[in-house]
Computed example of a mutant assay.
Amino acid sequence: MQISFSAKSENEGFARTAVAAFVSYLNPTIEELADIKTAVSEAVTNCIIHGYNLKGGIVWLEAGVLDRTLHVAITDEGRGIADIQKALEPLFTTRPDLERSGMGFSFMEAFMDTVEVESAPGKGTRVVMTREIR
C-alpha cells in the first residue's frame, strides 16, 4: 500500500485507520492493532509538527506484509533531524512551546518490534517500523 496525504493534524486519524484496515486480514488482536495505530500516529504527528513545523507538506505512508510481519514506512520532506540519537532520547523535543512530551520515538519503539530512523537536515525523515502479527 502506498498513500500520500497533506501534513495536517486531521489526517493523523486517516493514517491510523488506513494501516489498521490494511493489516486486518491477518486478524490481529485488539492490542496489536492499538499498538500499531499508536506508533503510526506518533510517526505521522512527528512529520506534521517537527518535520514541517505545522506549515504543511506531504506525508508518504507505505505498508506491506511479509509472512506475518507488517512493515510500515512514514516519510516527510521536512527539515530533517540533525542528531538522530538525541531525537531518540525519551523526553527530548524540539517543540516544548507546544507542550510536546518528547516520547514519540519511545512509544514507537515500545509498540513495534523494530524502528529505524533515516534523516538528513533539510531533506526530511523516514521512519521504518515492523511488527509481527502473532
Rank of each mutant, 00 (worst) to 15 (best):
E116K: 08
V23Y: 02
M1N: 14
Y25A: 14
V65A: 14
N11S: 14
G122W: 04
S6C: 15
K37E: 08
E31P: 04
G13R: 11
S41H: 09
S6T: 14
S101P: 05
G78H: 08
T93H: 13
V65I: 11
D97S: 09
E42L: 05
S4V: 07
E12H: 12
E99H: 10
T29V: 06
I30T: 07
G80S: 08
S6Y: 09
V19W: 03
V44W: 05
V23T: 06
T93P: 03
T125V: 08
S101W: 12
A43S: 12
G51V: 06
D83W: 02
S119D: 02
C47L: 10
T38Q: 09
R95I: 12
E118D: 14
E62D: 06
A43T: 09
R16C: 13
G56R: 10
S6E: 11
A110P: 01
E32M: 00
H71C: 09
I81Y: 02
V23Q: 12
Q2E: 07
G102E: 03
T69Q: 05
A18H: 14
F105L: 00
A73L: 06
I84R: 00
K37T: 15
V117F: 02
W60I: 14
P121W: 02
A73G: 11
I3Q: 11
G56F: 07
F111A: 03
E89I: 13
F111S: 00
N53M: 08
L61M: 07
E99C: 10
P121S: 10
S106W: 08
V115I: 01
V59E: 06
G102K: 01
F107L: 04
E31A: 12
R100L: 15
A15W: 04
I84G: 00
T38E: 14
S106V: 03
M112P: 01
V117M: 02
P121L: 06
A63W: 15
R68Q: 04
R68H: 03
A34E: 08
M112N: 01
R68A: 01
T69A: 02
L61G: 12
I74Q: 11
L61H: 06
K55N: 10
Q2D: 14
A110C: 01
C47R: 10
A63R: 11
N46T: 07
I133Q: 07
G122H: 05
E99Y: 06
L70S: 15
S6I: 11
R16Q: 13
F22G: 15
G102F: 07
N53L: 15
R134M: 02
V19K: 08
A82R: 03
R131T: 00
I49P: 12
M1I: 15
K37S: 13
M112Y: 04
K86C: 04
D113Y: 00
V115P: 00
L88C: 01
